[in-house]
């Protein structure tokens, strides 16, 4: 299976990754190879086989008690924020 430049541009847009002009042909080539390789899966007989999303079968989600266990640690957490003001994380104006 072969991907086109447009495919790569669309995927990159969906994944919010800006690619340089030089990167695009590299990804066209390598993703095409990856999907050709992954195409091997087609020959596996999977009719009637259920998809396996978790490596340990039969386990169920545990339920947590409804308790507030957290206190305000905003100042600590915002030390990693590239742009914050008045307790808010800042982004360029969002137009809805």
């Amino acid at each position: 299976m072969s991907l086109t430049r447009t495919d790569i541009e669309n995927i990159a847009r969906l994944a919010r990754l800006e690619l340089t002009e030089a990167e695009i042909p590299v990804y066209v080539d390598s993703l095409s190879r990856i999907f050709a390789f992954v195409g091997e899966l087609d020959r596996a007989p999977t009719e009637g086989i259920s998809p396996m999303a978790h490596p340990l079968p039969g386990l169920a989600q545990r339920l947590r008690a409804d308790e507030v266990t957290e206190t305000d640690r905003r100042d600590l957490y915002q030390r990693n924020a590239p742009a914050a003001e008045a307790g808010l994380y800042l982004v360029p104006k969002v137009i809805e």
Binding site: E23, L41, T46, M52
Partner: peptide
Amino acid sequence: KRRIMTGTYVLSAGYFDAYYLKAQRVRQL
């Protein structure tokens, strides 16, 4: 970036069954 793009593609509309679900079935095998 290559892996993010690969993953974005296999989950996207029209490819999910052929790639993601197929792979999870082979995983079962």
